[in-house]
Design a binder for these strands. Structure first.
Length: 211
DNA sequence: ATCCCGAGGG
DNA sequence: CCCTCTGGAT
């Protein structure tokens, strides 16, 4: 049985080779639009988020515009992404905070981002990493949480604890890419219900495959 | 621990 | 019908 450090390095290396051009698949033009799309992506596929954001960003392209938006109109546009009341309020009230306290720009720290409504550590890490290239941490969503367990890289269930384990196993320079590739692998191969282990490139380094 | 919430797959 | 989708707030 190989140790966690060795397994983490081996998995990261193979994912790098197999998904060389992994990138964020949400559509956006500005950092604030990425934040908005990431808020909408909670418990929702990015494909569906990309279906509603063109209209959302056409009508409210900036925090200034969103800060003055009618809540019911925002709810109507984002309805199909689910949790639409919470998300609409988070978008408008967060935009008001950005305009009032941050000059319409995004905070560049996890603490600043988490102060915004609808923004937790996962969303903060995604936006800081993708928009500003700040490796604030490994974003642990449903995919990263599931695969970290199957890989044998964490025994935790709390996303923040899983993130702590992974961040201790991988160098900071690989954090952003690792998250993107694990999510991609989780969607395409290591799915929640019927994982396609026969088509998986991680044989020999994944704990689940070694059992 | 529970609630928020719609859409698609099996 | 049940599970899952790049979660967050109470």
């Amino acid at each position: 049985m190989i140790g966690r450090e060795e397994r983490a390095a081996g998995i990261a290396r193979r994912l790098d080779l197999f998904y060389p051009d992994a990138r964020c698949e949400l559509d956006f033009n500005t950092p604030w639009q990425l934040l908005a799309a990431t808020i909408l992506s909670a418990q929702c596929t990015d494909v569906r988020v990309n279906l509603v954001t063109p209209e959302l960003f056409r009508r409210w392209p900036t925090p200034e515009a969103m800060s003055r938006a009618d809540l019911a109109e925002v709810e109507e546009v984002i309805h199909s992404t689910g949790f639409f009341r919470n998300k609409a309020r988070a978008l408008r009230d967060g935009a008001r905070m950005l305009v009032a306290d941050h000059g319409g720009e995004l905070p560049r720290s996890i603490e600043g981002m988490i102060d915004l409504p609808g923004v937790g550590r996962k969303t903060a890490k995604v936006v800081l990493g993708e928009a500003f290239n700040i490796p604030a941490g490994i974003a642990v969503d449903t995919h990263v949480k599931r695969l970290a367990g199957r890989f044998g890289l964490s025994d935790e269930t709390d996303p923040d604890r899983v993130a702590g384990d992974l961040e201790g196993l991988l160098p900071k320079t690989r954090w952003v890419g690792f998250s993107l590739r694990v999510v991609l692998h989780g969607r395409r191969v290591c799915t929640a219900r019927k994982p396609q282990c026969d088509d998986c490139i991680l044989e020999g380094v994944c704990l689940k495959r070694n059992i």
